[in-house]
Simulated assay, not measured.
Amino acid sequence: MTDEDADELAWETTSRSVAYECPGFEIVHEEVRLPDGTPTDFDYLADDPAVVLLAFTPDGEVVLVEEWRQAVGRVNRGLPAGGVESEDADLAAAAHRELREETGYEADSVEKFGGFEPTNGVADAVHHYFLAEGCRPTGEQDLDFDESIRVTTTPYEDLLEDVRSGEVRDGRTALGVLNYELG
Rank of each mutant, 00 (worst) to 15 (best):
P58E: 08
V18W: 00
L64S: 04
A55F: 10
H128R: 05
E111G: 12
V110N: 04
D142L: 11
T14F: 03
E12D: 13
V177K: 04
E157T: 05
T138Q: 13
A71R: 08
G73N: 06
P58W: 08
H29K: 07
R169C: 04
N120F: 15
E85G: 09
A46P: 00
S17H: 01
S17R: 15
G104R: 04
Y44C: 06
L178T: 15
L91Q: 03
E133G: 05
E61C: 02
A95P: 12
E31P: 05
Y180T: 02
T152P: 01
E167G: 02
R74F: 01
A19F: 13
R16Q: 14
G121K: 07
S165M: 02
P39F: 07
E31K: 14
A71F: 04
T138L: 13
I27N: 02
D142S: 11
A71T: 08
R77D: 00
I149V: 15
L178F: 07
D170R: 01
F116S: 10
S15M: 06
D36E: 13
V110W: 14
C22S: 14
A123P: 02
P35K: 06
H96D: 13
A89H: 03
F113W: 11
T138C: 06
A132W: 07
S17I: 00
E167V: 12
T153I: 02
W68M: 06
W11D: 09
T57H: 07
L91A: 11
